[in-house]
Design a protein around this nucleic acid. Structure first.
Lengths: 151, 151
DNA sequence: AATTATTTTATGGTATATCATGGTTTATTA
DNA sequence: TAATAAACCATGATATACCATAAAATAATT
């Protein structure tokens, strides 16, 4: 499974359909579930996205840990209850459920934001704001920030 | 076997019949028992649900451990005694036994809640309450909560 | 490098199938 | 035979499969 990288701004049509960026689709290529899993972010006003294979990994992890870790149990419970498996149509679109759109404040345009093993879907202006904010935080905390270079 | 994901609110008809969500049905597709196994939750006022194949896995697991762990033995004994195998009808409905409904306080509407490898059936308002509670727990314990990212 | 051709991708609209739900009839069994 | 449960049939709402076009990106050609 390849990574979710870069950002793409796409439009929703009248039925709430939206194209998943082609590069995001290809990172799910070869898996048996041709689609993504979405859920409302617990921490931000945005939608979180995962591949089904990753979701399955989380399931087996929480299966084994759950007995001992009630916190993790709460977490995974919320996650699985909220998670929406959404299959691509022939042209690579999904329809994002109403409550998810509402949670992210998305109306007619959305940004898909790569996050490596996952991705997020944002209202475009909300994303810019959040981005500025975290950029500000970075500058504040690390005036001489350098990206680690390593092979 | 695919995962039980998302939540679905369905209605019971006058005979106690209720549609098992199509996506839950499809996660049992291909198994020889076309239905689910239900039992009263030990920890919550709700009904627990499993596929038959998973029930069988639990059986063999407790077979191996049970000899040494009397607690686990008691637990699995209760589980097997209480478990009800319920076959789908042609349209994908089941009738949930009276005592299970009573235990979960379900009257005319129920929510099927995905939990990964299992699911639960709740009274809608009771579920909302429980969900708020565990969300509260999470925020309290982990203000900077992040979903596990790893392999 | 500029232009054209070809493929991929995004978007819009319509038709079809699926699903949840209700009702009716036939079998079971107490 | 009355009561109960299982099989059968019907339907409105909704989602998804299908078809068509526009825009963009890539490749090919001059």
């Amino acid at each position: 499974m390849s990574l979710f990288l870069s950002s793409y701004e796409n439009r929703l049509d009248t039925k709430g359909r939206i194209s998943v960026p082609a590069s995001f689709r290809s990172s799910v290529m070869g898996e048996n579930f041709q689609g993504v899993v979405l859920y409302r972010s617990f921490t931000n006003d945005c939608i979180e996205g995962l591949s089904m294979s990753r979701m399955e990994k989380l399931a087996s992890a929480s299966d084994q840990m759950g007995v001992f870790d009630t916190e993790l149990d709460d977490l995974s419970a919320m996650l699985f209850a909220d998670a929406r498996p959404l299959q691509f149509d022939v042209t690579g679109r999904i329809v994002i459920p109403e409550d998810l759109l509402k949670h992210a404040g998305i109306k007619d345009t959305a940004v898909f934001v790569g996050r490596g093993n996952s991705f997020q879907i944002w209202n475009p202006s909300a994303f810019k704001e959040a981005q500025n904010k975290s950029m500000g935080n970075l500058r504040k905390l690390r005036p001489n920030l350098k990206i680690v270079s390593g092979n």
